[in-house]
Computed example of a mutant assay.
Amino acid sequence: MVQSINTKVDLVSDATSHMGISEYGKIMIGDKGFEFFNSRDARKFIQIPWDEVDFVTASVMFKGKWIPRYAVQTKLNGKYIFSSKEPKKVLRAIRNYVDPSHMVQSLSFFDVIKRGFKSKVKK
C-alpha cells in the first residue's frame, strides 16, 4: 500500500489520469501536495508536492461553464494531465496552495489556429 504525503486532506474526488492510457482513480488534495491513486492497481500513483508545482493549466470551454481537463506542470518531471467529475472544486482547492498567478487558462482551438496563421504570415 502507498503512503500518502498529506497529513490533512482538503478534497477527495473521482478522477482520470491521462498519462498514456487513461487510468481511473481518486485525486487527493491536501496540505503537502497533489496525489492521484489508481483505483485498480495500488502501485500506479502520482504524488506531487506543492513546492514542485510550477503551473496549473486548465482547458476552459463555454466561458467557464465546462472544464474538461487540467494539467499540473512540475518544475522537473513535466506535465500531468487529469480530468475529474468536479473540476471547479479541485481547482479551487489547488488555488489555496498554488499562487493564483501560476494558474492559467490554456489556449482555445481558435487561438492555436490564429497563432499558426500569424507565424506563417510573418515568414
Rank of each mutant, 00 (worst) to 15 (best):
F55H: 09
T7G: 14
L107E: 12
I48F: 01
D54I: 03
W50R: 08
F55E: 10
D54G: 05
K122P: 12
N6G: 08
K32L: 14
D14F: 07
V121F: 14
V56N: 06
R115V: 11
S119W: 15
T16N: 06
K63N: 11
E35D: 04
H102Q: 12
P87V: 00
Q73H: 07
V72W: 04
D51R: 13
V12C: 05
S59G: 10
V2P: 13
S22P: 06
V9W: 10
M19A: 10
I81D: 03
W50C: 04
L107W: 13
S101T: 07
K65L: 06
G33R: 00
L91T: 06
S83M: 00
K114Y: 11
K63L: 13
P100Q: 02
Q105G: 09
P100V: 00
G20A: 07
K114N: 12
T7R: 15
T16Y: 03
I113E: 11
R92G: 03
K118G: 10
Q47A: 12
P87R: 05
V104W: 08
F62N: 08
F34C: 04
D54C: 07
T16I: 07
H102C: 11
V112W: 11
I48M: 01
V2D: 12
K123L: 15
S101N: 08
V9H: 09
S83V: 01
I46N: 00
D111E: 15
V112S: 12
A15S: 05
D51K: 13
